[in-house]
Design a protein around this nucleic acid. Structure first.
Lengths: 150, 150
DNA sequence: TCCTATTAGTTGTATGTACAATTAATGTAT
DNA sequence: ATACATTAATTGTACATACAACTAATAGGA
């Protein structure tokens, strides 16, 4: 659906670039709402899911808080608190870093890996990924989005 | 900067489409952080700015709450509370709708229009809009983002 | 008309975000 | 070694978001 229709705009946008900035935010918000619903049956938020996937990337090693933050899609949220929630659900474990006692090592548990697996094979998740979208277009868009953040 | 670098990923993404979904969210979050900073000197949030612009679109008429919500870029936020904040700053006025007393008419004030004008001519705002990005690419991306939300 | 359903807006609450302040550990210069 | 700056993580707080519950007004059918 055209953005002007979705936002019920009478007038066209000032420029394609202005429209693009709004379109990216609108699409992101739209996608996040969908993602939130998809993850709801698994009792996990998109931010928690993102941290679990990051820790899966480190497995069987661990990451400290700072390394997690650097890899989060949305850096505005507080990794300490996200990690707290995951800890309560036993999806991760924490232990003190040997060499530098300021750091905390955080590692995904088998239970956490299991949950990720369950989510990824679930029907709604597969549906989100397919998204009926041409891979060639996706590749170009990825290049251009990367250019935009400069 | 490439998304893989930005997120310090060791492995490439599973597919261009999966990467695109993450790229849109990451770019949106990146842009929002910038936008938040840009608006800070004017003591207004992106959500409040968005509602003001919507009401400028209606001016000199008004919109009721529902019409505002339909036009918001991020529909997850609660328009009543955003409107409350704008009211405290006297950037808008509220009055009861004549025909249907469930509705509330909301209209931007001259003070609100002034603030929008100030923001739009400000240096940081102009900088955000330019974004050194090719208009032809922007147009294609807009078409493709619109296709994605289906 | 009366009853019920629907609609618009507001409010309550748990969780999340933005940002500053704090605590504790380490690095570095003298 | 001591003092000071820097770094990593945590905590406090005001505000925002997600979502359900609530209030009040209107619409529509028997």
């Amino acid at each position: 659906m055209k953005l002007e229709e979705a936002l019920k705009q009478k007038k066209p946008f000032e420029s394609e670039i202005q429209k693009l900035l709004i379109n990216i935010n609108f699409t992101s918000s739209w996608f996040n709402a969908l993602f939130l619903q998809t993850l709801k049956p698994f009792d996990i938020t998109p931010a928690q899911f993102n941290v679990l996937r990051i820790l899966k990337g480190a497995y069987p090693e661990s990451y400290c808080n700072q390394q997690i933050t650097e890899r989060m899609v949305d850096r505005s949220s507080n990794s300490t608190r996200i990690v707290d929630k995951l800890l309560k659900k036993k999806l991760i474990v924490r232990k003190e870093h040997k060499a530098d006692r300021r750091l905390v090592d955080i590692k995904i548990t088998p239970l956490g890996l299991d949950l990720l697996q369950q989510i990824e094979v679930s029907a709604p998740m597969k549906k989100m990924k397919v998204a009926q979208f041409n891979a060639e277009k996706a590749k170009l868009m990825n290049e251009w989005l990367d250019e935009m953040r400069m």
